[in-house]
Write a protein that binds this DNA or RNA. Structure first.
Length: 572
DNA sequence: GCCGTTTTCGGCCCGACTGTTTTCAGTCG
């Protein structure tokens, strides 16, 4: 069983938790957390890098020590340091630290004084009124702990961007109506267009006497007020989503927007660059001594550290600072670069609209082509097409194209990749299509090797064009099936196959890291909406956002091409 | 524990809010 980066990261995070409870040096703790974050973001697997003889201490935040620990985990599946730590500190305390309001110091204190070693112990201690007796604790803290225990589990998972959008846009719109508010902007991972958000960060600038915070906590969807100050407040909405509001002066808008957009790792890099120039950078501006030298716009902040403005989607400390220093930031793809969509469905399989309706909807979005790619017969639940029905659809599309103006339907099919790597329809019918969109919909439990071989074999088929939703993941509900994505990317490059970035907000598959990896390997992408109705064509913007997070430029994406060029690009 | 046109030691981002304290520690983002 291969060790995934996430497994290593989880162990490092646990070490960080335990060390923190032990009272270890905070910077040492941070080193483990940084390493965990770096590993989760790393598109290659550390295990395979080791196999290839690479030196892991070349990775940022990994030194000799942590490189050795990664190797130990990969080799043995465990880590002796962690085993030893777990003997010293009860593992249940890591759950206690996860309770809002309890950090490592308080967990340590509760362990020392009341012998709390688990959530169950914590609850018992709180209910019996013993926590309020511990120095540094009080009645209110005890109540807060009980409240946190009761509401535990609600809203602690990350929310998909699309669901966050629905609530966040309404809330920010409401805030803009408040007296004295100049601007209200959503920052945070939402602005960076991450596929999921942990919470919503709203930044507001307003007149000094604006009641914006009072209005914020009085919003109808607020379930709990976590904190409420003059310039900052946190609430929990009825759907469990946490929203933070921060209020700053207008002169600080750019600095605050930069600060609250993050990512944390990106901000730390920028602030360090400021320190090198004797500048202090915080949410109120850029300061030399007491003098504010910048802060009204983000551009000003970056300028002070000698950088061009960096798009929020890139702010993850994944090389964007270095690229900006060299003036080599990518020219990111934009929604209006898109010329068409290569993955959509109709009533013929599991879609809900006709060919003509989908064509009209695509045209209305300014596109010049739309591929109709209904399912093939193996997906019986979706009423997949056999060769005969697909032949009928091909004829129907040819006939409809005669009538259409300004939009061309492309003949396609979402062809199932069968368990043995063969395609679900005969070659002679596939040869009549403009392109194929091939996908795995079954046997997702194959071993990593078998799954990879299955996909590679399918890509060798001369009619294979696009690998749809390559990992099969559903954000928050289904993990990617085991697949050696690095080999798939290499094979796509070698065979001229295209990888899809499926734009459905619950798929976004490929993810940002793999998009970057594909792009760096010279593999072309297709951003496909997988639309089952007209409205789903608007998912394109989620796909474009994810592509942008993966440093993708228009030239990397085949559906930015005009139709004649696309046809040439589809030739294998 | 990492890192280095201030390297092999001495730094490591910075501020708001809460609850407890009566001047500040802990937590959080």
């Amino acid at each position: 069983m291969p060790v995934h980066n996430g497994d290593i990261a989880a162990r490092f995070e646990e070490i960080a938790d335990l060390l923190e409870i032990e009272g270890a040096n905070a910077f040492r703790v941070r080193a483990y957390r940084n390493a965990a974050r770096m590993l989760r973001d790393l598109p290659q697997s550390a295990a395979s890098m080791l196999e290839d003889g690479k030196d892991l201490s070349d990775l940022p935040g990994i030194g000799e020590d942590l490189a050795g620990k990664i190797a130990e985990i990969v080799k043995t599946g465990s880590l002796s340091q962690l085993d030893a730590l777990e003997k010293e500190v009860p593992a249940g305390l890591t759950e206690v630290v996860a309770i809002p309001g309890i950090g490592p110091k308080r967990a340590h204190a509760l362990h020392e004084t009341l012998d709390v070693t688990s959530l169950a112990d914590l609850e018992q201690a709180a209910r019996s009124g013993r926590i309020r007796e511990v120095p540094g604790f009080g009645r209110k803290t005890e109540q807060n702990i009980l409240h946190a225990l009761e509401t535990r589990g609600s809203g602690k998972t990350r929310t998909r961007l699309r669901e966050a959008e629905e609530v966040a846009e309404a809330l920010v719109e409401w805030l803009r109506e408040v007296d004295g508010v100049h601007r209200a902007t959503i920052a945070g991972s939402y602005r960076r267009r991450r596929e999921t958000v942990g919470d919503i960060d709203i930044l507001a600038t307003c007149a000094r006497d604006s009641p914006v915070v009072d209005r914020f906590v009085a919003y109808e969807d607020v379930r709990d007020i976590v904190s409420q100050g003059r310039t900052r407040s946190t609430v929990i909405l009825k759907n469990g989503l946490q929203v933070d509001l921060r209020v700053v002066a207008r002169v600080a808008y750019g600095a605050a927007l930069h600060y609250f957009t993050g990512s944390k790792a990106h901000n730390i890099r920028v602030r360090r660059m400021g320190q090198d120039r004797q500048l202090k950078i915080n949410e109120y501006g850029v300061f030399r001594g007491k003098k504010r030298v910048a802060g009204r716009t983000e551009e000003e902040v970056y300028e002070q550290v000698g950088l061009p403005w960096i798009d929020p989607v890139l702010r993850e400390d994944r090389g964007e600072i270095e690229a900006a220093q060299k003036h080599k930031l990518p020219e990111l793809i934009r929604l209006d670069d898109i010329r068409g969509n290569l993955h959509s469905h109709t009533k013929a399989s599991d879609g809900t609209r006709t060919l003509a309706q989908m064509a009209a909807a695509a045209k209305a979005r300014g596109w010049s082509y739309l591929a109709i790619s209904d399912h093939s017969k193996a997906v019986t639940v979706a009423n997949g097409l056999d060769a005969e029905r697909l032949a009928e659809q091909i004829d129907a599309i040819d006939a409809l194209n005669e009538e259409l103006d300004g939009i061309t339907l492309l003949k396609s099919c979402e062809v199932d990749i069968l368990a043995d790597g063969s395609l679900d329809l005969p070659d002679d019918i596939l040869a009549r299509l403009d392109l194929t969109v091939c996908a795995v919909h079954s046997h997702m439990d194959l071993s990593r090797d078998k799954q990879t071989e299955r996909v590679l074999k399918a890509m060798d088929h001369p009619c294979f064009n696009i690998m749809a939703h390559p990992t099969g993941r559903l954000i928050g509900t289904r993990e990617p099936y085991p697949l050696d994505i690095e080999r798939v990317i290499e094979h796509a490059r070698d065979t001229g196959c295209i990888l899809e970035l499926n734009a459905q907000p619950d798929r976004l598959d490929l993810d940002d890291g793999h998009c970057k990896m594909a792009r760096d390997s010279g593999v072309r992408l297709s951003i496909g909406t997988d639309a089952h109705a007209e409205a789903h064509l608007d998912f394109m913007r989620y796909g474009v956002d994810q592509a942008r997070r993966g440093w993708v430029e228009a030239a990397d994406v085949v559906n930015t091409l005009e139709l004649d060029k696309l046809r040439k690009a589809l030739a294998r």
